[in-house]
Design a protein around this nucleic acid. Structure first.
Lengths: 189, 189
DNA sequence: CAAAGCATTTATCATTTGGTAAAAAGCGCC
DNA sequence: GGCGCTTTTTACCAAATGATAAATGCTTTG
């Protein structure tokens, strides 16, 4: 709980009452490895905060290949924000890469927070902005660098994920086949 | 002017007075092809709205290669938002790809708008969110697809830029050499 | 422990892309 | 029109990555 509050307080001040209120709206959930937090074709149900584990965003391209877009681990929010806020069906999956424990807000509770805490909308907007900016900074270099450089910068961006994520997910995040990634790892050693 | 107001009104309502006030804070500037709107190592001076022309974001990697990150054309804001808001030095250049005409807000005026128009902060946050989301959607597919597919989706994302942007910029945006892009164009025909 | 089911690594060859260099095309300028 | 400059296209070979297939390694489970 504390980790969630600490994160939120980086984006604005809340008094004790407001924090109490927030926590009264939260629910703890567990996801087994490979479970979906939200699915393409369905409306996302939760804003989730990761207590334990790793999630990934992924989708399928027109060749039926599964593409991993992004990883999220402990201490961060994981949500298909745009689709959650407007309650429309998602085009991406959010899947547990490991067993996960999360705190979630459902849409009703999430909206009640906006209605109750003055300034919450602004805090929320800044949280979203920060997440998107970070994601952009991490994704952008993936286009222009060669595969080895991309892999090295992946390790830098997600240092404590490397031992918990299947090789194939990392490979698709980097835009290469898993065979290529395996080869790259050999050459690095 | 009207284009600017129309864009802004998509993110919230403003009365006539507020629109007047906004317009009193704006300044028209022209940039010649290759001029910089903002530079790496300098604090961005303006939020700019493009009336005519195309800008690009670019930077230099550790091999001294120039990498184009993004393009912005008529009807859109162009600004290194994060660096502008916090007034810290940028690491990217924003350069005119063609001769450009823009409306700009300097930092002082931009802040005055926040102080004057109730709800402006929220509108601003939503504008930034929208821009970042769009940029993410455009950049992400560039990682996982092959070069030909990337080029085709570039044309789709920026249909009226293709004849105004040097081949080399497009190539670096797509993460390939200009020779490769030239070859790809030949094969498409 | 053995068997089965995944995940990862290797190997081989085809294809794509990069690097270098040079030719061709486009464009402003005198 | 011709000259100089920049941009784009070609060509050639080297290097990186993809596709396919098989081998190895690692877990789970009975």
């Amino acid at each position: 709980m504390e980790a969630l509050i600490n994160l939120i307080l980086q984006f604005g001040d809340l008094n004790k009452q407001q924090i109490e209120f927030l926590l009264s709206k939260v629910e703890m959930l567990e996801f087994k490895k490979d479970d979906y937090l939200s699915e393409a074709g369905k409306v996302p149900r939760y804003v989730a905060f990761v207590l334990e584990g790793v999630f990934r965003f992924c989708y399928y391209n027109n060749k039926g290949e599964e593409i991993t877009n992004y990883f999220v681990d402990e201490g961060n929010f994981v949500v298909d924000n745009q689709k959650f806020e407007s309650q429309i069906v998602a085009s991406e999956y959010v899947q547990a890469v490991t067993d996960c424990k999360v705190l979630v807000f459902n849409k009703k509770n999430w909206d009640q927070i906006s209605d109750t805490i003055v300034g919450w909308e602004m805090m929320k907007a800044n949280m979203v902005k920060k997440c998107l900016t970070l994601a952009m900074e991490r994704r952008s270099p993936l286009v222009s660098e060669d595969a080895t450089t991309r892999y090295l910068s992946f390790i830098e961006a997600f240092p404590n994920m490397i031992n918990r994520i299947p090789l194939s997910y990392v490979a698709s995040y980097l835009g290469i086949t898993q065979q290529s990634l395996s080869r790259i790892r050999r050459n690095i050693r």
